[in-house]
């Protein structure tokens, strides 16, 4: 696996300072999803974010991924102040530095599994053209889908699709991998395999931030934070997992 290449200007790979995010409702009222969150994540950390529905977990993930922007406060990740980036530069930054795994896999249905990975590389252009296909095969081998490379996502099981989505999230060798309830749509056996896969990424030097309801997945995290009503109510180190 190729090591992360992004240099950071300090020890934190991800840093949120008093980040708030509010959404407008139809009645014109603002609904606060995050209320002044401050968070620091070091490179190589494995963070699990827990909380009930509506607590702000996905919003936090979206801010770190540059999918959304904070209403106020600062979000820095992989050496960039995300509030300063325009939409296109943000997309390029995201492609280079963040791999996102969704609950419902979100593989592009008209492309094969291998092509889904190649497309991510094509958009960003970080990986040299000649290296893209070998890298896609290497990633599929990592997630145990070498034999499924030429298949369309619809022909795969849920677990296989999620493993393909993880492989795709690593396409551009990002230092940060974010996952939004990656096991939420999988049975327990398949979930266990996916948890193993994520855990293996730590060994590859990735920084993981996973929103989950899955206790098994959370128990493997180095650090667990609890969100409630847009606030971090608990931030605990899981020394057994780190050990």
């Amino acid at each position: 696996m190729i090591a992360p290449t992004v240099a950071t200007d300090d020890a934190d790979l991800i840093r949120l300072e008093e980040a708030t995010k509010s959404f407008g409702s139809r009645g014109g009222q603002l609904f606060p999803a995050l209320r002044g969150i401050s968070l620091r994540v070091a490179p190589g950390d494995f963070l699990a974010v827990l909380g009930k529905s509506g607590s702000g977990k996905s919003t936090l993930l979206n801010l770190i991924a540059g999918i959304d922007r904070p209403t106020s406060g600062e979000v820095r990740a992989a050496g960039e102040d995300l509030s300063r980036l325009g939409e296109n530069r943000m997309a390029l930054w995201r492609g280079r530095n963040v791999g996102v795994v969704f609950q419902f896999f979100q593989l592009l249905p008209t492309l094969t599994v291998e092509e889904n990975i190649l497309l991510a590389m094509d958009f960003v252009g970080k990986i040299p053209r000649v290296d893209r296909r070998p890298r896609a095969r290497q990633l599929l081998e990592l997630v145990g889908l070498s034999d499924q490379a030429a298949k369309l996502p619809s022909t795969l099981s849920g677990g296989q699709q999620q493993r393909a989505a993880i492989a795709r999230s690593l396409a551009n060798d990002p230092p940060i991998v974010l996952a939004d309830e990656p096991t939420g749509n999988l049975d327990s056996e398949t979930s266990a395999a996916v948890v193993e896969l994520f855990h293996g990424l730590i060994g590859e030097g990735k920084t993981l931030l996973i929103v989950t309801h899955d206790n098994n997945l959370a128990s493997r995290a180095h650090r667990v934070i609890q969100l409630r009503d847009g606030l971090i109510v608990a931030d605990e180190m899981n020394h057994s997992a780190r050990g």
């Binding site: 939409e87 296109n88 997309a91 280079r96």
Partner: peptide, 10 residues
Amino acid sequence: IMKTLGARSS
């Protein structure tokens, strides 16, 4: 999804 993967609007 494509934008999340790093695709620009263009």
